[in-house]
Design a protein around this nucleic acid. Structure first.
Lengths: 386, 386
DNA sequence: CAGCTGTTGCCATGGCAACGGTTC
DNA sequence: GAACCGTTGCCATGGCAACAGCTG
């Protein structure tokens, strides 16, 4: 037993020593180091310690680490200062979004910022990535290439919410940061609208994909979902929706199954498609088709809300994931149903619902390709702030 | 300006000195001290600093405060150690749930616990509450007077009870005929259900009240809500819900107004009541009343979801508040509608929707009484872990 | 000069694990 | 002895306010 613990420990330790080294004047975001660690654990089927305990480990291995909080105002993140990824570490390939900070790591207040043409040697000390972008412009460029890191922002925010909701509900106390800055809400053109919704959906889909590919999140979702009291949900919803219990149960089972199989967004999309087909087939050809379709959307949404509600009351850790996925799936459902209605009535989807078609004509499948938009994420994440 | 800041500061300071004093061997939960402070600020229309800054204030006033974390395993709460409420403070009346801890505050491991007849003097040094109960029996009695604090514990117990009741019963009756078991379990689980939903709703209401009383949160909500693109919401929802735009806009305006006025839960309850009345009055007396009522619930929920969706995509800081409030209001809407349907059809609410009435017969108003239990919060927060 | 902005010190809170005392 | 439990140390993260360097 002692042996196995020691063994596991030495694996962790070796991994740390293999991939990181002490280095003056550079820092790493704690989260990226910890995320690497989590990934490592997942790959080697080790169960990870939490961030706090990991901190102890790190500090016991690399003595003398200091703490810094870097980032733009209101967005500071904790960093370990005095450590870097080894230049030859395979992790460099996994996540390249951390090094661009390296160039700002000298205790600052030394000045060589924004001196484009002048290659200051204060940057030279790190032989690795930091120096790959030896001018701010290059660093910027690098940064924009690493937009992927923003994908998780939404889920992170929501997860944080889920976490803090617990606190609210118990303590009934909390205060938001006082960043109440009124921004005028201008009149937005339909085009801008469509564009925004496009990018929103795009980001949603990317975030959702990240969730659905993460085994531990999936597992958390499954475990949370299994705690949901579907009998209660049905009990309340049935009066409102008048849905057959059998249908609802089948959907529940199907959903869990699909989740369990770590389905891709593609597979989810066809699952959703199939649901719509099944539900609406009995109305095919009937003049009541549009009405039935609308009712289906209403009820689908209602059931989703009830499940989300249950998850909230249980402070399910996966609340954020479910919320995210629910948004995306509802949106897709909307698209699917509209499409069916358009087919059924012979109208074009545009006639069914104006501009929505512009958005909806993107299928999830399209969104599933590796999102390479270079939008640094101002859409979903909070604007840098005006 | 400096003067006014100084003035405000001195008010705060005077209030602290008036109500608290240093005292060895006793502690106060930080949250209760901070809650008192918030209440004081609210009453005097001062805007409060956050808990962290309040901590600085406290420590600058009462030097030498130490930190302790007391509570049952997994439920520890931070306390200031070395301070107490003054015996003559009016706050004693407000919240009597903190002092019973006093007798356990000696750094412990000293042993005079449970030595009924022997009046140890280790308790003597504090002239106030701690020493009023110099035997465990008296302490018990005092404790039972402070039963308010147990409200939370009670709900916790109820909930745990409700949760495990089913399992117990199934086990206990494992050798009864299968049908008997099923019937019994059914009855009991319905009951457990009711209890569970009662406690959930209670907590929801308390949390919502905290949100609605917090000016900065309200402001955040307003600002976020004003950014919501209701035109877009309506555009999507109208096809599904077929609601009149005018009605929706009026609701939107009303909602914002009610929010702006920092309405109490009572006022919100009557607002909701009024909404139901307005919407359903055109169906009064009609046989389609129940149907209309159900449709209303569906559409209400759908619109809520759309707004929440918009808030999510904007990463609104007040997302959590809205989510919380939405859960509560939906629940209340459910109750209201059911009640109306029962009236309209002449059935009892129970007939309309079985056991739900048991829960629903609590109005929000009842829940609005000051729930100041210091419930360690096992209800909504995640269970200690299995 | 006044106004921004990144950084950091001080505080809060919370998870986990170790410790020492109690109970069975 | 084993199991349990309250407490505490060490770590994490995050808000706010003060500071200092920029920028206009």
């Amino acid at each position: 037993m002692c042996v196995s613990i020691g063994h596991v420990f030495s694996i962790q330790l070796q991994w740390l020593l293999d991939n990181y080294e002490t280095a003056e004047g550079v820092s790493l975001p704690r989260s990226s180091l910890y995320n690497h660690y989590l990934r490592h654990c997942q790959e080697h089927k080790l169960d990870p310690v939490n961030a706090a305990s990991f901190g102890k480990l790190i500090r016991s291995v690399f003595m003398g680490l200091r703490t810094r909080r870097l980032g733009t105002r209101g967005n500071s993140k904790y960093h370990y200062y005095g450590i870097r990824l080894k230049p030859d570490s395979p992790l460099n390939r996994l996540q390249e979004d951390t090094q661009y900070m390296a160039m700002r790591q000298q205790p600052v207040h030394q000045k060589p910022r924004y001196r484009p043409a002048q290659k200051t040697d204060s940057l030279g000390e790190s032989g690795s990535h930091g120096s790959l972008h030896s001018t701010p412009e290059q660093a910027m460029a690098a940064q924009s290439q690493h937009h992927q890191q923003y994908i998780g922002t939404l889920t992170q925010a929501i997860r944080n919410f889920a976490k803090s909701l617990e606190g609210w509900l118990t303590n009934a106390m909390s205060d938001f940061p006082q960043q109440v800055i009124q921004t005028k809400v201008g009149v937005v053109s339909a085009f801008a609208q469509t564009l925004r919704r496009y990018t929103s959906l795009n980001h949603l889909a990317q975030a959702a994909r990240a969730v659905l590919q993460n085994t531990s999140q999936i597992n958390q979702m499954l475990s949370d979902l299994n705690r949901v009291d579907f009998a209660n949900v049905q009990e309340q919803a049935s009066w409102v929706c008048q849905c057959e219990e059998g249908v609802v149960q089948r959907l529940e089972q199907d959903f869990k199954l699909t989740l369990q199989q770590q389905s891709s967004l593609d597979q989810w999309a066809s699952w959703l498609d199939n649901v719509v087909t099944q539900v609406l087939k009995q109305h095919a050809g009937s003049p009541s088709f549009p009405k039935a379709a609308r009712q289906f959307l209403l009820k689908w949404s209602f059931y989703s809300s009830m499940v989300i509600r249950d998850l909230t009351l249980r402070s399910a850790a996966s609340f954020g994931s479910f919320h995210l996925i629910r948004l995306l799936y509802d949106e897709y459902m909307f698209y699917l149903v509209e499409h069916r209605v358009a087919e059924a009535t012979g109208e074009t989807p545009i006639a069914v619902m104006g501009e929505f078609n512009d958005l909806a004509s993107l299928s999830l499948t399209l969104l599933d390709k590796d999102g390479n938009c270079c939008d640094p994420g101002g859409i979903v994440r909070r604007e840098p702030r005006a």
